[in-house]
Design a binder for these strands. Structure first.
Lengths: 199, 199, 199, 199
DNA sequence: AATGAATGAGTGTTCATTCAT
DNA sequence: TATGAATGAACACTCATTCAT
C-alpha cells in the first residue's frame, strides 16, 4: 500500500501544492500515448496513465470524462503532432530525388520513429471499431495524401501512401531490416507514373 | 437477462448432458477468432469466447492453459488456414494478367475477406509485443513472399507484399473504396521489374 | 439467500452511503484475524474477511495489495497486541511465586485465551513457509524470551519459553484439560536452575 | 496443454497399461503428505497430489471419496508410521542417559526429521477444526505419552511430552539452532521427579 | 478545482467433483 | 476398474467510475 510520492511533495515539506498546471492535460495525453505504445489498446488504464504522467489518479478522471474519451483525445493529439511533423518533412524537398530520400527515411527511420508508427497502427485498428476515431483517421490519411499529392498528383499519392503504410508495418515487425536500396526501389516504382494516365 | 441455453440442454429436459465433443477445441479456436474480429485483441475474454462457442466457461480454461495461449493458438490456426487459402489463389495463375487479376481481387475482395483482413492486422499488432506471435508472423510473411516470388522473383515479391498489406489495410479502413483500376495500377507498378536489377 | 445489509444502508433508505471510516483498515485486520481463528490460514479469503468486517469486497482489496499482504499485516498486528499483553502480565510480578502463578494462568487461561493461542500456532505454521512471517516470529519469540529472562536469566527463559509453547498447544488440543497442579509442576521444573550453570 | 507422460507409457509403446497396482493407494497417501509438507493444508489439491504420485488425476478421486477423506487417511497413515518409528527409538534405551540421548536426538534431529515434524504440527492445527482428526491426535499423543511413561511415569511423561513439542516447534522455526547442551538441560529438568510427588 | 477512498462489475484462473467411456 | 474430459462455483485481483471532502 505504499504510495509513490509525487515529485513536488518533497520540495514542499509534504504539503500538497495546488499549483496551476496548464501542462497537465497535455502531460496526461502524452502519458496515455506512452501507455498505448507499451501496452496497446488492451492495456491502457487510468492507473497506468496516472503513474506515467506522475499525476494522482483522480486527476485523470477529473480531466477526462471517461477512458474512451481520454484515448480519443490522445489519438487526436497524436494525429495533430504527426501531421505537423509529416508536413515538415517535405518543406525542404525540391527535387524528385529529395522526395525519394525523404520517403525512404520515413520508412527506415528506425527506433526514433517506432513510437510514432506503433501509435499509427494502434489508431487504425481502434478506428475499425469506433466511428469517432474513424473520422480522425479519414482526415489524417486525407491530409497525408494531400501532402504527397503536391509532389506526385493524387493517383500516385494514393498508391504511394498505401505502399508506405505496408513498408512501415513490415519494418516494425521484421527482425532483419530490409536493405535501404530495396525500400528505395519500391518507392521509385510507385512514383513512376503510368504514361498517359497518372497526372 | 435470459441465459442462452446450450444446444443440447433442451433436448434433455433441462438436465445437463455431457456430450462427446471431439470438435470442441477447434470450435473454441474459431470462436476466439470471431471474438478477435468483433472486439479485437483488446476485447477478448474467456467468457466471450465460451459464449460464442456455446460452451461452458470451464471448458475454455480446460482446453487452453491461459488466455494468451488460446489467443496464440487461435492466431496460429488462422495463419494455417489463410496460408492454405493464399496458396490456393495462385494455382490457376498462368499468365501475368492472371496474376494481376488475383492480386486485385485479393485487395478488393470486399466483405467476404474482411474477417481475414481484420485478423491479419490484429495479429500484426499483437505480434509487436509478443515474441511468440512474432515468430508466427515471420513465418507467415515468409511463406506469402515465397508464393509470390514463384511468379515475380524475390525482390519484386518483397515490395509487392508490402504494397498488398498497405492496400488491404486501406481497403479495410476507408469508407469509399478505391476504384479497382487504381488498385490494379499500383500492383502493376510494383510488378514491373527494374531493368537490370530485379530478376 | 438474503444478503446482510451493511450497517448504514438501512439508515439511508437503501442508497449506499460512503462513510468516512478511518478505522476501516484496522477493522479489516481484526476481521482477518477472526477468520484466521475460525478457518485457519488455509481458509482465509477476501470474501470472508469482507463479510466479517462488514465492508464491501473491493474495500479489502483496496486497502491491501494482496491476500498475503493482508495476512502478514494481520499477523503483525496480532503480534503487536500480544506482545504488549504479554509484557503487561509481568508488571505486577514481584516474587518467584508470582511468576509461577502468572505462567500457570497463561497456560490454563481457558477459552478467553483460546483465540490468541490459535492465532499463535497459525502464525508459527505459516511462518514455516513464508520468510517474511518468519522474521515476525523470530522477533516475537525473541521479545518474549527477553521478558522472561528478566526474571530467570537467558538459559532458563529459553527452555521455559519452549515449554510454555508446548503446554499451550496441548491445552488447545486436548479435550480433558490438564490439572493446574501438573502445569505448575512442569513450570517449576523448568524454572529450577541447574546448579553452577544457569545464571 | 502438453500432458506429462506417465512413467510406463513409453515402455509400453504408448498404450496405457492397466497393471494391478496395489501400492498405488499408499503412493497417493505419501504424495499427499509430501504436498502437505510443501504447501500446507492450504495448498493441497487433487492435482498436486496426482502429479506428485505420478498418477492420473482420476486415480486420486477414484481411490478417495473426497479431498477431506484423502487428507484424513494421509494423516492417519502418517500417525501409524510415526508411532512405529517413535516406539522404535526407545527399544535400545537401557539407562537414564540413553533416554536423554534419544530425546535430545529427537529434538535436534535436523532436516531428516523436518518432514515428520511439519506434518505433526499440520495435523495438530487441522485437528483443531476437524473432530475426526482430533480423535486421531488424541490417540497419537496418548500413545506417545504411554511410551514415555514406561520410562518416566505418567506425570513426568506429560510435561516431557509438552516440552518436546515446544522444543521441536522452536527447532523448526529458528534460524540459529539451539545448542545441544541447552536442549539436554531442558529435558533433564523435565525428567527430574519432584521428590515425594512424581512416581 | 482537485483528490483519493471507495465499490460493484467483471477478469483470468483454479479446482473438487462428476461421469461417460 | 480406471480415466480424463467436463463444468459450476469459487477464488484473488483489477479497474472504471463515483463522490465526499
Amino acid at each position: 500500500m505504499e504510495k509513490v510520492k509525487h515529485q513536488w511533495a518533497a520540495a514542499d515539506g509534504g504539503r500538497r501544492v495546488r499549483r496551476h498546471d496548464p501542462e497537465r492535460r497535455t502531460r496526461i495525453l502524452d502519458a496515455a500515448l506512452d501507455v498505448l505504445v507499451t501496452d496497446g489498446a488492451a492495456g491502457i488504464t487510468h492507473r497506468k496513465v496516472a503513474a506515467r504522467a506522475d499525476v494522482p489518479l483522480g486527476s485523470v478522471t477529473y480531466h477526462f470524462a471517461s477512458l474512451a474519451a481520454l484515448q480519443a483525445q490522445a489519438f487526436s493529439w497524436y494525429v495533430e503532432q504527426r501531421t505537423a511533423e509529416f508536413e515538415g518533412l517535405f518543406t525542404a524537398v525540391r527535387t524528385h530525388e529529395d522526395l525519394v530520400e525523404v520517403l525512404v527515411e520515413l520508412v527506415q527511420g528506425g527506433p526514433s520513429r517506432r513510437r510514432s508508427a506503433v501509435l499509427g497502427f494502434e489508431l487504425h485498428l481502434a478506428a475499425l471499431r469506433d466511428p469517432a476515431l474513424r473520422a480522425l483517421t479519414q482526415k489524417w490519411t486525407g491530409d497525408s495524401r494531400a501532402v504527397l499529392a503536391r509532389f506526385t498528383g493524387p493517383e500516385v499519392a494514393d498508391r504511394l501512401d498505401a505502399l508506405l503504410e505496408g513498408l512501415i508495418l513490415r519494418a516494425l515487425l521484421t527482425t532483419e531490416p530490409e536493405p535501404r536500396e530495396a525500400t528505395r526501389e519500391a518507392i521509385v516504382r510507385a512514383l513512376t507514373p503510368v504514361p498517359g494516365r497518372d497526372t
